[in-house]
Amino acid sequence: GQVHVGDTTYHFPNPEEARKFAEKAAKENNLQVTQHGNTFKVE
C-alpha cells in the first residue's frame, strides 16, 4: 500500500499498515483520508 501525504509518498508492504498510518496522519493533522484501491491519500 502507498500513502500520499502532501508531496511525500510512504510505501508499506501491507495495505492494512498503510491504512492505519493514513488514518493516524489524518487525525493528527485534521485532514481526510481518501482510498483508491491500496493507495491512500491524506489531504
Rank of each mutant, 00 (worst) to 15 (best):
G1K: 03
G1F: 15
Q2G: 04
Q2T: 15
Q2D: 07
Q2S: 13
Q2E: 12
Q2C: 11
Q2Y: 15
V3A: 04
V3G: 01
V3K: 00
V3P: 00
V3S: 01
V3Y: 01
V3N: 00
V3T: 02
H4P: 01
H4A: 06
H4T: 14
H4R: 11
H4V: 15
H4M: 14
H4L: 14
V5A: 04
V5P: 00
V5S: 04
V5L: 14
V5R: 03
V5F: 15
G6H: 09
G6P: 01
G6F: 14
G6I: 05
G6A: 07
G6N: 10
G6Q: 05
G6W: 10
D7E: 12
D7A: 11
D7N: 14
D7F: 09
D7M: 10
D7G: 14
D7K: 12
T8Y: 13
T8R: 15
T8D: 10
T9H: 09
T9L: 12
T9E: 07
T9S: 06
T9D: 04
Y10R: 02
Y10W: 08
Y10P: 01
Y10G: 02
Y10L: 06
Y10Q: 02
H11S: 09
H11P: 04
H11W: 15
H11D: 09
H11M: 10
H11Q: 08
H11I: 11
F12D: 01
F12Q: 01
F12V: 01
F12S: 01
P13M: 09
P13G: 10
P13R: 10
P13K: 11
P13Y: 08
P13L: 11
P13A: 13
N14P: 01
N14S: 14
N14D: 13
N14Q: 04
N14M: 04
P15Y: 14
P15W: 14
P15N: 08
P15V: 15
P15I: 15
E16T: 06
E16M: 06
E16G: 05
E16R: 03
E16L: 05
E17S: 07
E17V: 06
E17F: 03
E17I: 06
E17P: 00
A18W: 00
A18Y: 00
A18L: 00
A18Q: 01
R19D: 03
R19T: 03
R19W: 07
R19V: 04
R19F: 09
R19E: 06
R19Y: 08
K20E: 13
K20S: 09
K20F: 08
K20G: 05
K20V: 12
K20L: 13
F21N: 02
F21W: 09
F21G: 01
A22T: 00
A22S: 02
E23Y: 13
E23P: 00
E23K: 04
E23R: 02
E23W: 08
E23S: 05
E23V: 09
E23H: 10
K24I: 11
K24E: 12
K24F: 11
K24S: 10
K24W: 14
K24L: 12
K24P: 01
K24D: 10
K24T: 11
A25H: 15
A25K: 13
A25V: 15
A25P: 00
A25E: 10
A25D: 03
A25L: 15
A26V: 02
A26W: 02
A26L: 02
A26M: 03
A26F: 01
A26P: 01
K27V: 09
K27I: 11
K27E: 11
K27T: 09
K27Y: 11
E28F: 08
E28K: 10
E28D: 12
E28S: 07
E28C: 08
E28W: 07
N29K: 12
N29F: 14
N29S: 12
N29L: 15
N29H: 14
N29G: 13
N29Q: 13
N30L: 06
N30Y: 06
N30M: 08
N30W: 05
N30K: 09
N30D: 09
N30E: 06
N30Q: 09
N30H: 10
N30G: 14
N30P: 02
L31V: 07
L31M: 15
L31F: 08
L31D: 05
L31K: 07
L31I: 04
Q32G: 08
Q32M: 13
Q32N: 10
Q32F: 13
Q32R: 14
Q32A: 11
Q32D: 06
V33L: 08
V33S: 03
V33F: 09
V33N: 01
V33T: 03
V33A: 03
V33D: 01
T34W: 08
T34P: 01
T34Q: 07
T34G: 03
T34M: 08
T34A: 06
T34K: 08
T34F: 12
Q35L: 06
Q35T: 07
Q35K: 07
Q35P: 04
Q35I: 09
Q35Y: 07
Q35E: 07
Q35W: 07
Q35G: 05
Q35C: 04
H36V: 14
H36W: 12
H36F: 13
H36K: 10
H36N: 13
H36A: 09
H36M: 13
H36E: 12
G37I: 04
G37D: 06
G37M: 05
G37F: 05
G37Q: 06
N38P: 07
N38T: 10
N38S: 09
N38V: 05
N38M: 05
N38W: 06
N38F: 07
N38L: 05
N38K: 04
N38Y: 07
N38G: 06
T39G: 06
T39P: 02
T39W: 08
T39S: 13
F40A: 03
F40P: 03
F40M: 04
F40C: 04
F40L: 05
K41T: 15
K41P: 03
K41V: 15
K41F: 15
K41I: 15
K41S: 11
K41R: 14
K41G: 04
V42I: 10
E43M: 10
E43N: 08
E43R: 05
E43L: 10
E43F: 11
E43D: 11
E43T: 11
